[in-house]
Design a protein around this nucleic acid. Structure first.
Lengths: 163, 163
DNA sequence: TCAAAACAATACTTTTTTGTCCGGTTTAAA
DNA sequence: TTTAAACCGGACAAAAAAGTATTGTTTTGA
């Protein structure tokens, strides 16, 4: 239950692009310089982000990267999804079954799944609602928005319960 | 942002112990059998859980493992903490600074930290409040409790805001 | 007392992930 | 048309994590 380097650095690079004036681009060496990473490594993230449709590239000398959409249109979840390991499906509880068995031993009556599902849902809610724009606007806005999400989610729960 | 095998399997093994009648123990081969894991692997988890103070062991033939506390006294967070890699501090955003710099490049004005902190706090809230006992009691109870936690957290937020 | 079964702990192997390297293509400008 | 700077993308190396093996210690009971 932790953040992979790919996720952190990739998000940081995306934020760098989000901070640019609309229409401007940034080259890999420039991003690498700003984030203190190697150019090669940054290139790797950017390729993933491009394949995920979040970033457009300009080739040739004077080339670089820019966001494919406005920062306010890009949810953090999109960034994380783009950065996921290409082959590997993401691990949740119960996805994995252990070596000896053909399928999850507890396909039925799993004691862990309900907890895991609820938690995942909350995380997903956050990451789909917070955008690059929100991060740009800094601490105040991010905290404010997360509060709003929590409150709203809670009212929805209340309704579900009272029905 | 995913669950490590250690965390999942370790928690499962803990749940196996929680399901036992009070005072009874379970041997590594028995746990391994029930979870479809190798005995050696299970032993590894159990060692971590013991070092974390969550599990007591009985040595010798007829030996085994049992919880050191009542299932209702063991929060999931304790289990996860015990299973963390011994040396490695957990990765959060901003913990890591990249190769070239001595400290995090964005020690000040980090655009990612407030988001990350808020999310972590929520996750922590869940894992400290849900216990092994809750998992045992099944889907209904777990879902109900997670709802309650969400609602309560939201009211607290409301107070903070209105002050 | 001895053997069998179980925990203890560390070393080892395999797999996955992280991060780098390098030969290729594209494009702007001299 | 040549050159330099940048992206492309797969191969490769290094580090971390997952999972196994092994050797040793403890205890029960024949």
């Amino acid at each position: 239950m932790n953040v992979s380097p790919l996720e952190e650095y990739g998000l940081r690079c995306a934020v760098q692009l989000a901070a640019l004036p609309r229409g401007e681009s940034l080259s890999a060496p420039e991003i690498a310089e700003r984030e203190g990473l190697s150019v090669e490594y940054v290139s790797k993230f950017m390729l993933l982000l491009r394949r995920g449709g979040l970033v457009r590239t300009i080739r040739g000398i004077k080339g670089g990267f820019l966001l494919a959409k406005a920062p306010s249109e890009i949810a953090l979840k999109e960034v994380f999804d783009a950065l996921k390991q290409p082959k590997k499906a993401p691990r949740g509880f119960c996805d994995s079954f252990s070596g000896k068995s053909e399928t999850c031993v507890r396909s039925k009556g799993c004691s862990i799944r309900p907890f895991w599902e609820t938690l995942s849902r909350h995380v997903e809610e956050f990451t789909t609602r917070i955008t690059l724009q929100d991060l740009l606007q800094g601490e105040e806005v991010t905290r404010g928005k997360t509060r709003a999400i929590a409150l709203e989610g809670a009212s929805r729960l209340k309704e579900e319960i009272s029905v």
